[in-house]
Design a protein around this nucleic acid. Structure first.
Length: 570
RNA sequence: GCGGCCGUGGCUCAGUGGAUAGAGCAUCGGAUUUCUAAUCCGAUGGUCGCAGGUUCGAAUCCUGCCGGCCGCACCA
């Protein structure tokens, strides 16, 4: 699974294929990483060969170890170990190749042009207008942003779309509530909080009194019909909410290309519905609702309510068609929670039924929802609260470090605390595979020890410390024979994995893979750091400086791909 | 009821066909005259939910059961 440099493996695979008759591709797949470093750097299990040759895997491993000619490869020797054939890197050759490559490619190490000329539309974040940005929205926001950066790094042109929830019946409620009891001062003071309050109160009343329900629907119909006054009011609410959201995006360093909320597709749904009608896919059900049956074992997709108003699915339908026609993307990614899995399955099937040939380019990038995100009293936790608490915690540590003389009092403490807090929050999320439900735990978010954002940042800052004090820039003309200790070897191997890690993260739409890798990388670096000095280490100094600088390059790039800004001191 | 996802040390999670199942937190013990101790080293801790099956080999694949979460026509 974990792979060394691709060429290194490919070379070995060819050797093995020539010698044994095994297919090269198959051999390539079989490579593994040995359980423990002493066993070797790359392992080849011989079970398949044993079966094919009707011989014992252990004997085959032994024979191969004796017969293979490794000259010209990155490996110096092969050793049988039971049914495994273990290869050992020729470290000076390997480190020389690797570190020179990173030195030359700089922040493009791991990048690719496989996405050149291709566009990918990413639909993410998408909070609801008039509702607070709580930490449940964080996942979509940061996963989407990270994917955008990963795609960009691989040469794609990402289109970042924020599919704001700015349309729908719930808006009718807010408008209706406002019409009954408005408070301009409150709206100015805390726009989202106030609009939310209107919505909550109204919703409560509506559940008891059907007349309220009716009235809200009436307001939404009016809005959808384009009534100027209603539209203006709606637009005002929308802008107020958007301003609030942009504050959060600013803190996270995120900029969208388009804020095309659901309202944006208001005039694009008609044609889509006509098309469905022409194709005789649209059926009329109970109370005149209009719907399409997409599969026998799935519920039908409702596209029009009995009062003629549209639904979420109608807008998503129009959006998909519009986006595809406008951008002709290689892929459209919907970074939306797993509870909406059925909705997207239906949507994709619906588009397929309409005859669009690109429906296999649509992907629902689902993620688990956050458990326990409410306070003891049961209120939702706002994202900004969490961010501010993490920031406070970081501020304490910064103050300690200044006191201890590890950090100059001149640093921008607020900016630093902000960045550390953000990394804590983001990494707390990226630590887990995205489809898993995430348990939100204050103690965990505010703990800066171990596998955390601050750990990654701290490692980066330490590296900067060394480079700052080195006094001279690292160079590639060094004696690679001095990079030989076990800790050094492990760090080098981790560095070599980065390009494939990025590819894998894209293939699986999984920022976690990069995050997890960064923990392996920084873990290896910190072991190296605690066992070996760089500055003043004589002949080792120059090669170690190059190694450390390469680590900085990869760590900084990895953090950036996660949406985290690397810190130079902390 | 139907469908989907999940069940791995006290807690949070990696590992999804291969070697003695890993990490972080927590607990206990240790490391700093020298590049930041937000670090590192060590110890304790697991019948991988349960029962069958497939395989040379299963945490991983198949079947059944138990437990939890989510979704299932006019919310988004």
């Amino acid at each position: 699974m974990q792979a060394m440099l691709r060429e290194a493996k490919a070379g070995l695979a060819k050797l093995l294929a020539d010698r044994t008759g095994l297919e090269k591709e198959r051999a390539l797949q079989l490579f593994e990483t040995p359980r423990r470093p002493e066993m070797g750097d790359l392992a080849f299990p011989c079970f398949d060969l044993g079966k094919a040759q009707k011989s014992s895997p252990a004997k085959i491993a032994g024979d191969l170890a004796r017969d293979l000619d490794l000259s010209g490869t990155l490996f110096s020797r092969a050793e049988p170990n039971g049914p495994y054939l273990n290869f050992f890197l020729d470290l000076p050759v390997f480190s020389g190749k690797l570190l020179r490559k990173i030195f030359l490619e700089k922040n493009q190490y791991g990048a690719a042009d496989s996405g050149k000329g291709k566009t990918v539309v990413i639909d993410y974040s998408s909070p609801n207008i008039a509702k607070p940005f709580h930490i449940g929205h964080l996942r979509s926001t940061i996963i989407g942003e990270s994917l955008a950066r990963i795609y960009q790094f691989l040469g794609y042109l990402p289109i970042r779309i924020n599919h704001l929830g700015d349309w729908g019946t719930q808006f009718g409620m807010v408008l209706s509530a406002w019409s009954k009891d408005r408070n301009e001062d409150e709206l100015k003071r805390q726009p989202i909080g106030y609009l939310l309050q209107l919505y909550i109160n109204y919703n409560k009343q509506a559940s008891e009194n059907p007349a309220y329900q009716e009235e809200a629907r009436g307001w939404f119909k009016k809005l959808e019909a384009g009534d100027p006054e209603t539209y203006q009011l709606w637009e005002r609410f929308r802008n107020l909410s958007l301003e609030e959201f942009k504050k959060v995006y600013g803190r996270l360093g995120i900029e969208f290309d388009y804020y095309w909320g659901e309202s944006f597709y208001n005039d694009k749904m008609g044609p889509a519905l006509d098309q469905l009608r022409d194709a005789r896919l649209l059926e009329t059900g109970e109370d005149n609702v209009e719907m399409v049956r997409v599969a026998e074992d799935l519920p039908p997709v409702l596209l029009r309510k009995s009062d003629g108003a549209t639904l979420y699915a109608t807008r998503d339908l129009a959006a998909a068609i519009y986006r595809f026609e406008k951008f002709e993307p290689e892929e459209i990614l919907y970074v939306v929670g797993r509870p909406q899995e059925l909705h997207f399955r239906q949507l994709f099937l619906l588009l397929k039924k309409m005859g669009y040939p690109w429906t296999d380019r649509l992907h629902h990038i689902k993620f688990g929802h956050i458990q326990g995100l409410s306070t003891r009293k049961g209120a939702v936790v706002f994202l900004e609260q969490v961010l501010d608490e993490a920031k406070d915690r970081a501020r304490e540590k910064i103050a300690e470090n200044i006191q201890a003389g590890k950090l100059s009092p001149g640093v921008d403490q607020d900016q630093l605390a902000e960045q550390i807090g953000i990394s804590a929050l983001l990494v707390n999320d990226f630590k887990n595979r995205r489809e898993r439900d995430l348990s939100f735990d204050w103690d965990q978010v505010l703990n800066f020890d171990g596998e955390t954002g601050p750990y990654l940042q701290y490692t980066h800052a330490r590296i900067f410390g060394i480079l700052r004090k080195a006094g001279k820039p690292p160079g590639p003309e060094v004696d690679f024979n001095f990079l030989s200790e076990p800790e050094t070897r492990e760090l080098l191997k981790k560095l070599s994995l980065f390009p494939e890690i990025v590819q894998l993260a894209r293939r699986e739409y999984e920022p976690f893979i990069i995050c997890n890798y960064l923990f392996e990388l920084t873990g290896a670096f910190n072991q190296f750091y605690n066992h070996h000095r760089v500055l003043g280490s004589g002949d080792s100094e120059a090669p170690r400086l190059l190694l450390v600088d390469s680590t900085r390059e990869v760590l900084a790039r990895g953090l950036t791909l996660l949406g985290v800004k690397p810190l130079e001191r902390m």
